[in-house]
Amino acid sequence: MAKKYAEKLDRVTKTINLEQPDRVPFMGIIIGSWAAGYAGYTMKDIFFDYTKYDLAVNQVLQNFDFDCVRIAGGARPGPVFQALGESAKGFTTPGSQSPDDSILQYVDVSYMEAEEYPELIKDPFAFIFEKILPRKYPALRGNAPQQAIALAKSGMLYTKFGSAMRGFTQGWLNNYGNLSLTRGSARAPFDMLADFLRGFKDIMYDLRRYPEEVCSACEALLPLAIKGAKHSFGGPPQKFPFIYMTLHLATYLGPRSFEKFYWPTFKALIQALTDEGYGFLLFFQGNWNAYLDYLTDLPGDKGQILALFETVDMKRAKQVLGKKMCLAGNFSTELLLFGSSNEIEAHAKSLIDDAAPGGGYILTTDKSWLSVQDVKPEKVQILMDAVRRYGVY
């Protein structure tokens, strides 16, 4: 396993550093719900019995020899949410708020009123802690002793969850030579504001009605975003593994609004953390064809950013960004449900031809694998075989 890990690490790090390895790496994007379905468990199982999450991922890693993986969560700590009153309005809990086998569901909720922007801007941490969290979780709405008990209990349960996950991760490395690309996560300030405070619908109103407040709120949230990323990473800064960041709402804004509301604090976040030596795996959700030129101005040295795209003209992305950052993604997940073997192979070969010359490309799908009903295991294997056939340098 040590030899296998060393081979994968050499292949992947050369690719990330824009050097030419022996072949194009393939990255598996494993969501807990996909692993659970593959192993015969429900989402309720892995929410409340973490050992079943470990067993599920073990089965996946035993049967699929990925070059690298992003094990993208999916096992949310059910007992923590129960301790907080289980009313995490933004997400549903399998077994109580949704069926046992339902994948994670996001519900668009606004926890903050537009009139509260000044309070958020003045002290975002206090506002979130004192106003937003009690609105999300019933157990935090009582008197001070009740709040303290709920926080202490949920904190202990979350510590137990985190300890279990760290142990599982080490086991996956030891047992399967598993190379995980990420550790910790971050959020762009605009996404923090939109996803966790105002909600998708209301933030779109705010761009027209309260544009300066939105900009000021993003600036106020920037220090929290930096601190949160460092805390989730743990330990001293290092370029690899990467901090993971999903860029959620950027492409909903249009280029002009993106430049005003999203780009300044997103770029500042990347600047602050890459200056300290961290690296990023950035998942560019949506269609980024109109935004590629912005990304040429992202801070960071060669090898500090891995750009995972959902939808982009990969040939143009290689031309624009290929000398600055490693590229990944853009393989249609739909083909792993509806595609024939020939279609899967042809799409993989096309992406390799467009993005892999000279190194700097990791082939993976354009979306995470949510369900075995959406991404068929046998078609994942076809894709992996195609990468090994066509991706040799």
Rank of each mutant, 00 (worst) to 15 (best):
L306A: 12
A307L: 02
L253Q: 05
L335P: 01
R389T: 14
Y252C: 07
F338P: 01
Q304P: 04
Y38F: 11
C218W: 00
P236T: 14
L120W: 00
P138T: 15
P124M: 06
Q271C: 01
A72D: 13
Q271Y: 03
S368P: 02
T51S: 13
L61G: 09
L306S: 11
L363N: 02
A88E: 13
F190R: 03
E7C: 08
G300V: 10
D108N: 14
W172T: 06
K201E: 15
D65A: 09
P211Q: 11
Q170W: 05
D100C: 00
G358V: 09
S154I: 02
G339S: 10
Y294D: 12
I362Y: 06
D10C: 00
M112Q: 13
T251M: 01
Y5V: 04
I29T: 10
A164R: 12
K376L: 12
S216V: 02
A250F: 00
K201T: 14
S154E: 06
M245P: 01
V372I: 10
T93Y: 01
Q373D: 13
T251R: 00
Y252F: 11
V320D: 04
K267W: 04
G303L: 05
F168E: 00
L335Y: 03
P138I: 11
S98Q: 12
Q170R: 14
L253V: 01
P255H: 09
L308Q: 11
Q97P: 02
S340R: 11
I362D: 00
G303N: 07
F196M: 12
R183L: 14
S332D: 15
L321H: 03
S96C: 08
E212A: 10
P25D: 00
S185L: 05
W288M: 00
Q238H: 15
D108L: 04
A307N: 07
D45F: 03
T333V: 15
I30A: 08
V387G: 00
T296V: 13
H231L: 15
Q373E: 13
N143T: 12
E213D: 15
G277F: 05
M245A: 13
P118C: 06
L308W: 13
F258H: 10
A386L: 00
L247N: 03
E276R: 12
G90Y: 06
E19S: 11
Y278L: 10
K44M: 11
A148L: 08
S232R: 14
H248R: 08
I344S: 06
K122I: 09
Q373H: 11
N330R: 09
E212P: 04
L306T: 03
F127E: 08
